[in-house]
C-alpha cells in the first residue's frame, strides 16, 4: 500500500467513526521542497493527523488551518516559504517554497 492509499484508508476510518476530517495537499513547490507535489496530510477533529506536507516545519500551522476548515467547510490555499511573514514561526528551513491546499473531506 502506498502513502496515499494509507492516508485515504485512515480518512475512511475517521469518517466511519463520525469524525470531521480535512485533507491538506502540496499543490505547488519551488526550489528545494522536502515533499513533492501531491503529498498529503490528513487531519481529524481533535487534532490527530497522518502523512506529511513538509519535513515537519509547517505541519503545526497546517493542522491548525485544517481544524478551521473542518469547522467552517471553506477550502484554503496556504503559502509557505522563507519570505512568508510568518517565517519565524513556520518558515521552511530548506529555503524552498510550497503551496498547500486544505479542504474538508465530504
Amino acid at each position: 500500500m502506498d502513502d496515499r492509499q494509507q492516508i485515504v484508508k485512515q480518512v475512511e476510518d475517521w469518517r466511519a467513526a463520525g469524525k470531521g476530517v480535512a485533507l491538506a495537499t502540496v499543490v505547488t513547490t519551488w526550489g528545494s521542497s522536502p515533499r513533492p507535489v501531491g503529498s498529503k496530510l490528513a487531519v481529524a477533529e481533535g487534532g490527530a493527523f497522518v502523512g506529511s506536507v513538509s519535513g515537519g516545519c509547517i505541519e503545526g500551522a497546517v493542522v491548525q488551518e485544517a481544524l478551521d476548515a473542518i469547522r467552517d467547510g471553506k477550502p484554503r490555499l496556504l503559502d509557505f516559504g522563507v519570505t512568508n511573514e510568518q517565517a519565524w514561526e513556520v518558515g521552511l528551513a530548506c529555503g524552498g517554497k510550497v503551496q498547500v491546499y486544505v479542504e474538508r473531506v465530504e
Binding site: 496515499r4 485515504v8 480518512v11 469518517r15 485533507l23 479542504e103 473531506v105 465530504e106
Partner: peptide, 11 residues
C-alpha cells in the same frame, strides 16, 4: 475532497 472521488480513483 469528496471521499467518493478518492475511493473511485484509487479503485
Amino acid at each position: 475532497m469528496k471521499l467518493d472521488f478518492a475511493r473511485a480513483a484509487l479503485a
